[in-house]
């Protein structure tokens, strides 16, 4: 019997070699690459258009990624718990329209915002509730709810713009110390809250368990349904806050407000290292993912790219980055195709 020279010597792979370098590994590959990409894009854009590095532009970027960051924070919770909600964009549209209509009709800003946020929470909960009661994956029920939310928003606004210029600008327009946008500070708050939940609370640990292996979690005394409902409620809450910030900054709402943000949010979360199959991920990744979206969008503006081309670029970018993150997670894992099927559902 001849020996094959390619054979690895026995003993390799057990014990020391498999020691846990996972966090370092992730850091080395995904997050580090993300930061690198962000720097590169920034530098290139800066060279093409020096205005990119002006303070006003940096503030502009921070302001623009605020809403996406808030929504993505909630989406991170949802995706880790093994669920997804692609109706967040439509949800923003509906709740911001409701807020705008209420403010317009003379109801105070505060009660309007509270009502809008409550509505967003309820809408998000509905997605989870139908997914669970009808035993359907949440991407399908949320798909259906896009029509429902948009339809209702169209019906109550009769398709027209709801403008509230000058009536609720505090949140969207304030700049702390004349520099730091309040909206960005709110988004930082969202990241922090989610980080705190994920790292330090019982609910956070449960989200990971439920997303990773619901059967094992259930047998260990964790209520899978309750945990997922909470994830939907939190996501809805962040969607509500996001609509509030958005409305306050733009000063107007229409049914299509927020449409398309779902893809950007999912993209940001997954680029940040949270797999769509759930059970893993950290908020720092999401933050970097959101930042990437913001920088690219701004860079495209700076380079005066036609807005429709920007749309095309974004679609391509999101698909490409998801593909990359899937490849990198495949590397160390001998996974069968089943895991991709799981990722779909």
């Amino acid at each position: 019997m001849q020996t094959n020279p390619n054979v690895k010597p026995p003993g390799v792979g057990s014990g020391t070699l498999v020691k846990n370098n996972k966090y370092q590994l992730i850091f080395r590959s995904q997050w580090f690459l993300l930061l690198l990409a962000e720097f590169l894009i920034a530098i290139i854009t800066g060279i093409v258009n020096p205005r990119f590095f002006t303070i006003s532009n940096v503030i502009n970027v921070l302001e623009q990624i605020a809403v996406l960051g808030i929504v993505s924070s909630g989406m991170t919770l949802l995706i880790i718990s093994g669920e997804i909600d692609i109706s967040v964009g439509a949800n923003i549209g509906l709740s911001s329209c409701v807020m705008a209509i209420m403010i317009k009709s003379g109801i105070g800003v505060f009660p309007s915002f509270v009502t809008g946020i409550a509505l967003a929470i309820f809408s998000s909960f509905l997605v989870g509730l139908t997914a669970h009661t009808f035993k359907a994956p949440s991407f399908i029920t949320s798909l259906a709810f896009i029509s429902v939310f948009q339809g209702i928003a169209l019906a109550i606004t009769k398709g027209s713009f709801q403008t509230i210029y000058g009536q609720a600008e505090t949140i969207g327009m304030t700049r702390l110390g004349n520099v730091l946008p309040l909206s960005f500070v709110i988004s930082l708050g969202a990241y922090l809250v989610v980080h705190f939940i994920l790292a330090y609370t019982k609910f956070g640990r449960r989200i990971y368990s439920v997303g990773s292996n619901p059967a094992a979690a259930y047998l260990s005394g964790i209520s899978v349904i309750k945990t997922k409902y909470y994830a939907f409620l939190f996501s809805g809450f962040f969607v509500g806050i996001g609509s509030m910030v958005l409305l306050s900054r733009i000063g107007a709402a229409q049914p299509s407000t927020g449409s398309g943000i779902e893809l950007k949010a999912i993209g940001a979360v997954v680029i940040g290292g949270t797999p769509l199959s759930g059970g893993k991920g950290r908020i720092i990744g999401t933050l970097l993912g959101v930042l990437l979206m913001g920088i690219i969008s701004n860079a495209l503006n700076m380079m005066r790219v036609n807005p429709y081309y920007q749309q095309v670029t974004f679609g391509l970018l999101i698909i490409a980055s998801l593909a990359m993150s899937i490849f990198s997670s495949y590397k160390g894992h001998a996974r069968s195709e089943k895991s991709t099927k799981k990722a779909i559902e």
Binding site: E262, L263, Q310, F314, G315, I319, L322, I326, A343
Partner: peptide, 27 residues
Amino acid sequence: LIIVITGVSPLIVTLGMMMILRGFSEL
């Protein structure tokens, strides 16, 4: 091809493609 080669879920790929094609159509 994208779905098969990259292994990204069809939901995301076609959602992205929706965005891309809307952009192209406008252009």
